[in-house]
């Protein structure tokens, strides 16, 4: 099973302004000139050949994640990241009106819906588009996206056949060869994360969430979302102190995600739902702050003789693909 992050920004799409792009190019040129002084043979290609995680660009599309195997392709949320995913799908059966898309909605805040009117396969006759959610108002919320005067094409005129599926809380459902189970997250309007399982491996999608419940007791029925999981994606919109100031805004911080991952022994964590106002430099700053917390926590636990589980973690970017 693999996962591709098509949109990792939270709240609102965030395209870089001209000044930000200019500043980035300037910084890169200055860095190249500096490095070339020490190594006159350095080529542009060598200079640009940084590991992907060191390239300072996280992207600006809102929530959309693809979970797939050789046989099954699932989508979580319809944020603006679903537009480039749609272009990708159009190169396959969806482009010929023979495709099938399965879209799991976590909740219906705009940033998770805003890309749906630009999901091209939904306009193509012959395609079948399935929407899934725990919330009872799934159909009503999807229909509203295709309503005049907000969007010119009414729902009734969409070419694809559209199906709405109601999911039961915490009850697994097989879609192709992937098992999907919804668990409740902590968000001002009801929001459900998903656990995807395939061939004994599990991916937990835990966005959007303020993660107000962290202890096993408090998580209760939703604890399995975090247990025996190989990869977790977690909401880290804010710094820890911002998240405290913004109680009940519905978003968390990376240190809280690391607490959960270290306790439940989740080996890999990606953080997403970056704040729309966060520049790439700010997200890099959040990474450094998170590293300080992680190292301090590891040391304190080791020094006290406690059980220590090391977690591999990073801040996700648009286009990131990982194995589960």
């Amino acid at each position: 099973m693999k996962v591709k992050m098509w949109g990792v920004r939270g709240s609102l799409p965030a395209a870089p302004a001209r000044s930000q792009a200019f500043s980035k190019v300037k910084k890169a040129l200055e860095s190249f000139v500096k490095q070339q002084k020490n190594n006159p043979q350095l080529s542009v290609d060598e200079f640009l050949n940084l590991p992907e995680s060191q390239q300072p660009c996280y992207g600006g599309h809102t929530s959309c994640v693809e979970v797939f195997t050789d046989k099954t392709q699932l989508i979580v949320d319809g944020g603006s990241g679903i537009r480039p995913l749609a272009e990708h799908l159009m190169a396959g059966p969806c482009g010929m009106g023979k495709g099938e898309a399965h879209i799991f909605m976590t909740h219906f805040h705009w940033d998770h819906l805003i890309g749906l009117p630009f999901f091209i396969p939904i306009f193509i006759p012959g395609n079948r588009v399935h929407f899934y959610a725990v919330q009872e108002d799934l159909e009503q919320n999807i229909r509203r996206m295709f309503t005049k005067p907000n969007f010119p094409v009414p729902f009734e005129a969409l070419g694809a056949q559209i199906f709405f599926h109601s999911m039961e809380p915490r009850k697994p459902q097989m879609i192709g060869d992937i098992q999907v189970t919804p668990y409740q997250l902590d968000h001002p309007d009801p929001c459900w994360g998903y656990r995807f399982e395939h061939q004994g491996r599990a991916y937990s999608h835990c966005v959007d969430s303020e993660a107000l419940r962290v202890s096993r007791d408090d998580l209760g029925l939703d604890l399995p979302l975090y247990q025996n999981c190989n990869v977790m994606v977690f909401d880290a919109q804010y710094t820890f102190e911002e998240a405290i100031e913004k109680t009940n805004w519905g978003h968390s911080s990376a240190p809280i995600g690391l607490d959960l991952a270290m306790r439940e022994k989740i080996p890999k964590v990606y953080f997403m739902h970056h704040d729309p106002s966060a520049s790439d430099e700010h997200i890099a700053y959040l990474q450094r702050r998170t590293e300080d917390y992680y190292q301090a926590r590891l040391k304190a636990l080791r020094d006290s003789g406690s059980d220590v589980f090391e977690v591999d973690w990073e801040f996700a970017w648009d286009g990131l693909v990982f194995d589960v």
Partner: peptide, 15 residues
């Protein structure tokens, strides 16, 4: 020192 390391990483003293 270990406790301060953790508190500093979360800017906790000011919070």
């Amino acid at each position: 020192q270990g406790i301060l390391d953790q508190l500093n990483s979360l800017k906790a003293i000011s919070q």
